[in-house]
Simulated assay, not measured.
Amino acid sequence: MASFRRRGCKCEGKKRCTCGATWEYRIVYTDRRTGKQREKTKGGFPTKKEAQLAAGEEERQIQYFGFAENGNESLEKFFNEWLEIYKKPHVKPITYSVQERNVRLNILPRWKNYKLKELTRNEYQKWINELRDHYSEGTVRRIHSIFSTAINDAVHEFNILRENPIQKIKIPKDIEKSEKVSFFKKEQLDVFLNALKTPMKNAKYQHSIQYYALFSLLARTGLRIGEALALTWDDIDTTAKTVTVNKTLVYPLNSEPYLSTPKSKTSERTIRLDDATVALMKRHRINQKEVVLRYENYQASKDNLVFHQQDGRWLRTNVVRDYFKIVCKRTNLPILSPHALRHTHAVHLLEAGANIKYVSERLGHASVKVTADTYLHVTKKIEEDALNLYERYVGN
């Protein structure tokens, strides 16, 4: 039940207030979340009638939600606590790093001085529209996802907001969203890999075939670069002709690298190797030992790594990318990234007539749909070729 009073009125004894004093209400209720008795007061109403109407609406809200909305906490404080309590202990370090970076660089510079209750749909939508002037649709979706998830937790976990005001926000779409997948044609791949057989003139370790083995493995298996760099020799079975993927190397910017679980459950897989790749991996293992013996400052890997730096530690992803681009330039090929070899493997498999479900499992995709959507231009060609074969078969 609400009670009302006029605050600071100096018109005692007068029939009518002329000093401008305002009315406030006070509501005492039991918080259903905690079972404790609490109260909410709010003032600044010119008349008692307005205070009564506002109190009635607040009582209906309390009855519905079971608590009085607070939302006085700053967004800066809330996001910092949210990251520490709800994200850091429960997500992979690389995921936390991405979320923390987006909060620090994109969200807080704009919203840190706002209180939770001051967040409005219209102002937020305007900000999202502004972000699209600087970032891609995918990046803005990622920022919005982090923000909206945090506000959902404010509603359902922290219980300091009744509703999420930024639901059903519209992200402006790319006018021409490019779904083009970068890959090497069969002839281009041959040129690229053949170029790796001859060491670069300024290469420090001329005898090493490490990059030839690495890029050949990527092109012949579709492994992600992090999956390949995490491999140990225990993961490669040359007798069974398989490579087992059960970890990935994460190399954050300006931070120490670490091993993590694969991207998804389906990313944990065992892949069959063709005979040429098996032979190359055997040769690489011997070559690796020869390089250690040949060069004084080249150390063996204590962790039995398949690919490593001269000091025995994990090979750096940025070094691999730079080497890849140098070879592309040297051979006058399109300047792509090592990830293009994963796409190359998938495209070549599909063009060779491999079943799309097999390709999906080999790549470790979450579903066949992901594979089909990613390589739509290839699957359409396969569909057309299959239809042409059918038409020839039935005689039309």
Rank of each mutant, 00 (worst) to 15 (best):
N202T: 10
Y124Q: 12
A154T: 10
L280Q: 08
N80F: 10
K369E: 15
T18N: 07
A228C: 15
K115A: 11
K180S: 06
I171N: 05
A55L: 03
D235I: 04
E227Y: 12
L253Y: 14
M1A: 05
P334S: 05
N396M: 14
N152Y: 11
L280E: 09
V347A: 06
F192H: 03
H339D: 13
S255D: 15
M1Q: 08
I356C: 06
N332Y: 06
E163Y: 06
F192A: 04
G8I: 00
A366L: 08
K302H: 00
W82M: 14
R104C: 04
Q61I: 04
L349Y: 04
K42E: 14
T244N: 05
Y323W: 08
I326W: 02
N287H: 08
H144V: 02
E179F: 11
P172S: 07
E351D: 08
A276S: 15
F4I: 12
V378P: 01
E163P: 03
N388I: 11
E290M: 06
W233R: 09
L253S: 09
T331A: 07
T261W: 00
S74Y: 07
I236F: 13
K380S: 00
Y64Q: 01
V250T: 10
E157Y: 01
L131V: 10
E130Y: 14
I236E: 07
W82D: 12
Y258I: 04
L349D: 04
L350P: 01
D31W: 05
D275C: 00
V140S: 03
T239M: 13
L389M: 12
T277S: 14
D274T: 11
Y358A: 13
W82H: 12
I160K: 07
Q299Y: 11
L389P: 00
R294H: 15
V28I: 15
T242L: 08
K282T: 06
E57H: 11
L189W: 02
E384I: 11
L229C: 10
I143F: 13
L116V: 12
A219R: 03
P252K: 03
W314Q: 02
E137S: 00
S255I: 02
E118H: 12
D234A: 15
E391H: 13
A386Y: 01
E130R: 15
K282G: 03
N102D: 03
K112D: 08
G353K: 06
T242V: 11
D190V: 12
E24M: 15
D311H: 10
T34Y: 07
L336N: 09
R316G: 07
R32V: 13
Y114F: 14
Q52F: 02
E81W: 02
F183C: 00
T239W: 06
T198W: 01
E57A: 15
L229N: 04
I160Y: 01
I382P: 01
Q167H: 14
Y25A: 12
T22D: 06
V319T: 14
H284R: 06
L218H: 02
D322M: 00
S360H: 06
H144C: 00
G56T: 13
T266F: 06
L341I: 12
K88M: 10
R362M: 04
N396D: 12
D235Q: 02
G56S: 14
A195V: 03
V378I: 14
G13Y: 10
A279Y: 08
L280Y: 05
E296H: 12
S97K: 05
